[in-house]
Design a protein around this nucleic acid. Structure first.
Length: 587
DNA sequence: TCGCCGCCATC
DNA sequence: GATGGCG
DNA sequence: GCGA
C-alpha cells in the first residue's frame, strides 16, 4: 500500500503524527510524501482534521475529487485493521456514505454494495456495530477555529495529541498530554519509557558504534582482537568498526547507513573540525535508521526519523538517488581505522588519537617507538601495553573469582564492611568488561570505612591481584573515593579493568543505582529526574536545585538530598516501578 | 537560541 | 581548561 | 546537526 497520511505539515508534525508514519512504514506500507492520486492507494487523516481543512490543504473542492478507489480513513483503521470495513473508519462521513463502502479491504466488495449504502443516513453518530470505544469518526465535530469540541472522556493513556492540524495556533485542547504512542513504537506502560526513548535514541546508535555490556550477540566476532602493526588494524572490543552485524545485514537503507557512518567517523576522529554534537546527532539518527524497516523514498519520509533534519535528509536523499555522497570524496577518509585504533587505548580520545596520526604514527608499534616524538601519559602507556587485555571481556566466573578473593581480604581488614560487586556483573551478564566494586560501612557502631581502601589496595597488590593503577584518589581519608586500575585472577591470567568506589553509608542506594547502570538506564533516570525538577547523581536524588542560567551544568545551590540510601526510594519518588538490576537494560 | 547526563581524574 | 572515562 |  502507498499511504498518504495527513495530520499536519511535516515540518511541524507532532510526535503522534511522526510516530504514526513511522508505524505505517513498519507495517510495510510505503509512506507517500504528498498526496498524489496516481500512486496513493489509501489516505489516512488525523481525525481532528475536518473535511473542510483537508480539502483546502489539498486544493480540492469536494471529496469527490479524490478518486473513489482511494479510501480516506482514520488512523483507527490501521490499528484495528482486518476487523472492520472501510466504512467504519471513514474519515469523513459524507464520503463514507457515498463513496467508500465498496472498498473493503478484506472482502473486496465491488461497487454494487455502494448502492445499498448510498443515501442511507444514520441517525446515530455511530454505527451500531461499532465496538471501538472512541474512534467513531462521525462523532468528531467539524474542526473550526473555535476549537475541537470534546468528543470523548479522556481515558487514561488514550486520546490524540492535538496539534496535527495546520491551524497550529488554534486552540485545540490538549486532550491527554502524552499518549503511550508518543513514547515510541510498541511502548509499554513503563513511565521511564519516554525517557528511554530519548536516551536510547542518543545512545542506541552507539549500540552500533560501541560494543557494550548488552551486545552479547557479537562476542566472538572474528576480528575482535586487535592486530598491531598490520595494515588491517583492529576491531578492538570497544568498537564495532566497519563490520555490520548480521542482524543489520538486511537493513533496507544499509547504503545510507554506511555513508552516514563514514561521515560521522570523519567528524568523530578529528579529520574534520571537531563537532561533538554532530557526532551525537549522527549517532541518534543512525540508530533510527537501523530500526527503520523499509526503504526510504522521500525527503519527507526521511525527516520522520528522530535525528534527521533538513541537512541529514538532504544527504540521505543524495545517497538514495545517486548511490553516493559526494561529500565523502573530498573529505579525508582513508585512515579512519588508524585513528580508531588509537582511540581504543585507555586514556586516548579523538583529539589525542588524531594528533598522533598527524605526527605520523600509523600503528600501535609506531606509538611504542614514539615515532614522531609523540608523548604518552602514564595511563596511556599502560593502556597501550595492555591494549588487547583491556579491550576484551572476561567470563562472569572470572569476575566472581576475583571478587571473592577481594571480598575475603576486605572483610579481614574490617568484617563490618558492606562490599558489593556492581556493573554488568550485578545486572547478571554472562561476561563483564570490568569489575566494579562498591565499598561502604554501617556507622551504627561509630566507625566508618575511612582509610579502608588504602589498606585494601595494599593487600591486593601484595596478593598480586592489583597490578597497575590507572587513577588514584588524591586523598585517602575521605569516605568518598574512586579508584581505577588493572587486576588479574592469577599470574597466568589476562589483566582486567577494576574500579573501586567508596561512599558514605547513607548514599549507598544512589551509588548502587549509579554503579549498576546500565548507562542508558542511568541517563533515563537522570533525564526523568530533571524533568521533574530534581537532579540525580551518584550521591542522591536532589530537590530544589537551581542552575545557573548562563552556565548550564553549574548549580547555584546544590539542593536538598531527598533520597540516597535506598534504590527503591529513588525509584519511588521518580514514579518508576521497581526494577531488579538484571532488568535495568535499555527499553 | 540553547541544550544535548553528571561527575571525576589527569595533564 | 581541555580531554578522557565511568555508570 | 537536531529539536524544543
Amino acid at each position: 500500500m502507498c499511504i498518504y497520511y495527513y495530520g499536519a505539515d511535516l515540518n511541524i508534525a507532532t510526535q503522534t503524527t511522526r510516530m504514526r508514519m513511522f508505524k505505517l512504514a513498519q507495517y510495510g506500507a510505503r509512506v507517500a510524501p504528498k498526496y498524489d492520486p496516481e500512486s496513493v492507494t489509501h489516505i489516512i487523516v488525523d481525525k481532528i482534521v475536518s473535511r473542510h481543512i483537508f480539502l483546502e490543504k489539498h486544493n480540492l473542492r469536494k471529496l469527490k475529487d479524490v478518486p473513489g478507489h482511494i479510501p480516506i480513513l482514520t488512523w483507527d483503521w490501521v490499528t484495528d485493521k482486518g476487523k472492520g470495513q472501510f466504512s467504519k473508519y471513514a474519515a469523513f462521513r459524507r464520503r463514507n456514505a457515498v463513496d467508500s463502502m465498496p472498498y473493503d479491504i478484506d472482502t473486496n466488495i465491488s461497487s454494487k454494495a455502494q448502492r445499498t449504502a448510498k443515501g442511507k443516513k444514520r441517525a446515530s453518530p455511530r454505527p451500531p456495530s461499532s465496538n471501538s470505544s472512541d474512534e467513531e469518526v462521525s462523532s468528531i465535530p467539524q474542526f473550526t477555529s473555535s476549537g475541537r469540541a470534546k468528543s470523548k472522556p479522556n481515558g487514561p493513556g488514550r486520546g490524540d495529541k492535538a496539534g496535527a492540524s495546520d491551524e497550529k495556533g488554534a486552540n485545540q485542547s490538549e486532550v491527554s498530554p502524552r499518549t503511550e504512542e508518543d513514547a515510541g513504537i510498541g511502548s509499554n506502560k513503563d513511565p521511564l519509557a519516554e525517557f528511554y526513548e530519548l536516551a536510547r535514541s542518543e545512545r542506541d546508535a552507539e549500540r552500533y558504534r560501541y560494543r557494550d555490556d548488552e551486545t552479547d550477540d557479537e562476542n566472538e566476532h572474528p576480528g575482535s582482537r586487535a592486530v598491531t602493526g598490520s595494515g588491517r588494524i583492529s576491531r578492538q572490543s570497544k568498537f564495532i568498526c566497519d563490520g555490520i552485524k548480521k542482524s543489520y545485514a538486511n537493513c533496507p537503507n544499509q547504503d545510507v547507513i554506511d555513508k552516514l557512518t563514514a561521515l560521522k567517523r570523519i567528524h568523530e576522529n578529528g579529520f574534520a573540525k571537531d563537532d561533538r554534537f554532530k557526532v551525537y546527532n549522527y549517532n541518534k539518527c543512525l540508530g533510527q535508521l537501523h530500526s527503520y524497516p523499509t526503504r526510504i523514498h522521500s525527503r519527507e519520509e526521511a525527516m520522520l526519523l528522530n535525528g534527521v533534519g533538513t541537512e541529514t535528509a538532504k544527504k540521505i536523499m543524495e545517497i538514495i538517488e545517486t548511490g553516493d555522497l559526494r561529500r565523502l570524496h573530498y573529505e579525508r577518509t582513508g585512515d579512519i581505522k588508524i585513528v580508531e585504533t588509537f582511540r581504543g587505548i585507555y586514556g586516548v580520545g579523538g583529539k589525542t588519537a588524531y594528533k598522533w596520526y598527524v605526527n605520523g604514527c600509523r600503528t600501535l608499534d609506531d606509538l611504542r617507538n614514539r615515532k614522531g616524538g609523540v608523548k604518552l601519559s602514564t595511563v596511556q602507556q599502560i593502556g597501550l601495553k595492555y591494549y588487547n587485555d583491556i579491550n576484551s571481556r572476561m567470563p562472569r566466573s572470572e569476575a566472581a573469582t576475583i571478587f571473592d578473593k577481594i571480598k575475603a581480604i576486605a572483610l579481614k581488614i574490617d568484617p563490618h564492611l558492606f562490599i558489593e560487586i556492581m556493573g554488568s556483573y550485578r545486572r547478571g551478564k554472562a561476561d563483564c568488561g570490568d569489575i566494579d566494586i562498591l565499598i561502604t560501612r554501617p556507622t551504627d557502631d561509630g566507625k566508618t570505612h575511612a582509610g579502608v581502601l588504602c589498606k585494601l589496595l595494599r593487600e591486593l597488590r601484595i596478593a598480586g591481584i592489583i597490578t597497575e593503577d590507572l587513577c588514584l584518589p588524591d586523598s585517602w581519608s575521605d569516605l568518598e573515593l574512586v579508584y581505577r586500575g588493572l587486576c588479574r585472577k592469577d599470574s597466568s591470567s589476562r589483566r582486567r579493568r577494576i574500579d573501586f568506589l567508596t561512599v558514605p553509608y547513607e548514599s549507598r542506594g544512589a551509588a548502587l543505582l549509579y554503579y549498576t547502570g546500565d548507562d542508558i538506564f542511568n541517563r533515563s533516570m537522570r533525564m526523568k529526574a530533571n524533568k521533574m525538577g530534581y537532579s540525580l547523581n551518584q550521591k542522591g536524588l536532589f530537590a530544589g536545585v537551581v542552575r545557573d542560567p548562563h552556565d548550564r551544568t553549574r548549580k547555584l545551590n546544590q539542593g536538598t538530598n531527598i533520597a540516597s540510601s535506598s534504590e527503591r526510594q529513588i525509584f519511588e519518588i521518580l514514579g518508576v516501578p521497581w526494577q531488579e538490576p538484571h532488568e535495568r537494560i535499555r527499553g
